[in-house]
């Protein structure tokens, strides 16, 4: 059977150096910004609700503490 007749997982993996990797065959100006914008958006969409939750929890704890103190006095 001819090599490459069935593209398996391990076929056509080719060693490349770091420079080649970053240059992306001349398409670096398109590939890397695409990845950058994606990474940033995906991090923000998780970080935003987590920060909101933390802040809310802090505010509520303080309110709770204050209410307890006023009940005692």
């Amino acid at each position: 059977m001819a090599r490459g007749a069935r593209p398996g997982l391990l076929n056509y993996w080719r060693e490349k150096n770091m420079l080649e990797f970053f240059q992306m065959g001349g398409y670096a100006a398109y590939v890397w910004p695409a990845y950058g914008i994606t990474a940033l958006s995906m991090i923000l969409v998780i970080a935003h609700p987590i920060r909101k939750h933390k802040k809310l929890r802090k505010t509520l704890s303080q309110l709770h503490l204050k209410r307890n103190q006023s009940e005692r006095s």
């Binding site: 001819a2 490459g4 076929n11």
Partner: peptide
């Protein structure tokens, strides 16, 4: 989406 080698092989076949 194929590696060039596969397309070559397919063309040859």
């Amino acid at each position: 989406y194929m590696p060039p080698e596969v397309i070559d092989a397919l063309d040859k076949a």
